[in-house]
Design a protein around this nucleic acid. Structure first.
Lengths: 160, 160
DNA sequence: GTGGCTGCAAAGAATTTGCATGGGC
DNA sequence: GCCCATGCAAATTCTTTGCAGCCAC
C-alpha cells in the first residue's frame, strides 16, 4: 500500500472526522500537522513522540510537545500513521501503512520492520473465547546487529 | 506446565539469584513477597501493579507500592510470573506460566487468555532481517462479551 | 549479625489537559 | 468570523529510586 502524500492528509482527516468524531467539523491542515506528518514520509522510521518533537522543532521551533501528542493521536486515529502500543516504555509511531510486523531489540530498544503479510489465520485460531477478534499485534523480540556484535554481556538498554 | 506452589518460590528465587544476579546472594522469602505471589495463584488473572497493591493491602495494610513494583520485577525476572509488556498503558502481570496468548478488549481494556501453543514458525518467518530472533509477543485485539452486548457506541475505556 | 528488604516519600518519565490566543477555512 | 488548533504550563498517571530502619537467614 502506497504511502499517503502530505497533500492528501487534509482530505483523509476530513473523511475521518466526518465518519467518526464529529460529522460537522473539519480537521484543519495546519503547519504543525503538516510538518509532523512529513516525519513519517521516510520509510522504516519508528518515532516516539519526543523524536517527532525534536525533529519538528528544527522547522517549527515554537511547537509544543502537547501539540505533537495531540496530533499523533489524531493522525493515528485517522489511520494515517500506526501507533505501536507494544513493548512498554515509550510509545512509538510508524508511518508505514502497508502491513508489516516489528522486531524490538531487547538490548537497545531499537525497532525494525519485518515485512510480512498479515496472518488472518491467527485471528481465526484466537476466536471462540468470548471475544470478537478484531485483529492482533505481533512483535518479535531479538538482538539487533549492533548488539549482537557488542554482545559480551551488556546493559539491557531501554527495554523495561 | 503446572503453577508453582508458593512454598517453592524461595527455592526458585535463589536458583535465579545464583544463576544471574548475584551468585553469592540469597533472595529472601518475606511476608510481602509471599502474599504478592499468592495473588497469582488464581489462574486467568492479569493484574496491574495497582491491582496487586490493592489486593495485598487487605492482608498487609502497610505494604508500599514501591515494594509491590520491586517484587513484581524480581518475580518476573525469576520467571515466576510473566510481565505483559504489551498494549501500552499500564503494565500487567500474569501468573500463568504455561504458554498462551492474550486478547485485550479495545473498549474496556479487559485482558483474557487465549490458550494456544507457542508458534515457533513465526520466529522462523521473522528471521533474516539482521536480528537474532529470540521470541515474540502476540496480543489479539477485540471486543469482550460485555462490551459486545453494551455496544451501541460506548466510551473507549482504558485503552489509550 | 549481616545484608537484603521494606516503608516512606520524593523524584522521574511519559502523557494528558485547561485555558487564552491564534489562524485555517 | 467561527471554531478548531496551538503554546504554555500545570496536572496526571505510572514507575523508579534513595535512605534509614527492619527482619529473614
Amino acid at each position: 500500500m502506497p504511502r499517503i502524500c502530505v497533500e492528501e492528509i487534509g482530505i483523509v482527516l476530513n473523511m475521518h472526522a466526518q465518519a467518526f468524531d464529529n460529522p460537522a467539523s473539519l480537521l484543519r491542515m495546519t503547519r504543525q500537522r503538516r510538518v509532523i506528518m512529513e516525519q513519517f514520509q521516510t520509510p522504516g522510521r519508528h518515532l516516539s513522540a519526543d523524536d517527532v518533537y525534536l525533529s519538528v522543532r528544527r522547522k517549527l521551533p515554537n511547537i509544543s510537545l502537547g501539540t505533537v501528542y495531540r496530533n499523533l493521536e489524531i493522525l493515528s486515529q485517522a489511520g494515517l500513521i500506526r501507533k505501536l502500543a507494544l513493548g512498554g516504555g515509550q510509545r512509538h509511531y510508524d508511518g508505514g501503512l502497508h502491513h508489516h510486523y516489528h522486531v524490538r531489540c531487547v538490548q537497545c530498544g531499537r525497532i525494525s520492520d519485518i515485512p510480512a503479510e498479515s496472518l488472518p489465520e491467527l485471528d481465526e485460531a484466537a476466536s471462540g473465547h468470548g471475544f470478537r477478534i478484531l485483529g492482533h499485534e505481533l512483535e518479535f523480540r531479538g538482538l539487533c546487529q549492533a548488539c549482537q556484535e557488542t554482545d559480551s554481556r551488556g546493559r539491557k538498554g531501554k527495554e523495561r
